[in-house]
Amino acid sequence: MKKRIPLILIFVAGLLGVISFVIPHPSYQVYDEWMRNDLLRVLSAFAVVLALGSLLRVHFDKIRRKRRNWQYSWLLLVAFGGSAIIGLFGGVAADGILPTTVRSFSFDIQTLYENIVIPLASSMFALLAFFMASAAYRAFRVRSTEATLLLTAAFIVMIGVLPLGYSISKHLPAFVQWILNVPNVAAQRGIVLGIALGVVATSLKIILGIERAWLGGGE
C-alpha cells in the first residue's frame, strides 16, 4: 500500500497531464487550469516548506553536534530568521504590520533582496569568470584536437562579439554569426534531440512505474 498507492497516483496524474494536451475542450481546459494554477502551485509552496525544514534541521544539527565550521550555521539561521520575519510581517511592498523603515533607512524584504541577494549572486557568478579562464588554460595544455577546436571557437566568438573584432577584420563579426548559426546550431540541435528523447523515455518510465527512485528508500 505504501508504494502501490503513490504508483497508481503518479500513473493517473501522468495520464491526466498527457490528456490535457490533446483535449482542447473548454471544460477540460478549466480543470487543467485549476490543476496548474491552484493545486500544483499550492503543492510547490508546501514543498518549499519541506525543503526549508530540511535546511534548518541540517544546520541545527550541525550546531548541536559542533561539526566543522558550525559557527557559520548561526549566521545562516539568523539571516534566514531575520529576513523571513521582515518579509512575512513587513509585507512584500512594506505594507505589513511590522514597520520596515526607521527615519530614512528602510529594511523591507525587497531592499534586502536588492542589496544582499542580487549583489552576492552577481559576485558569485563574476567569480566564475576567473575559474573558467583557468579551466580554459588547463584544457589548452591538453593539446588534443578537440580541446584546440573548442578553444579556437571560443576565442573567435569572444573576440568577434566585441568592437575589437570588427577593428581586426570587418568580416570577423559575420564569421562569428556563421559559427553560431551553422556548426553551433547543428551541434546544439543534435544534443537537444538526444535530450528530448531521453526526457520522453524517462517520463514514460516514471509514469509507468518502471523508474521508482523518487519513492526513496524504506518500505
Binding site: I19, F21, L40
Partner: peptide
C-alpha cells in the same frame, strides 16, 4: 509520496507531448 506523485506525475505527463 502522495503529493510528490501528483505533482511529478502531472508535470511529467504534460512534459511528454510538449517535448
Amino acid at each position: 509520496r502522495i503529493p510528490i506523485a501528483i505533482y511529478m506525475g502531472y508535470w511529467t505527463g504534460v512534459l511528454i507531448p510538449a517535448t
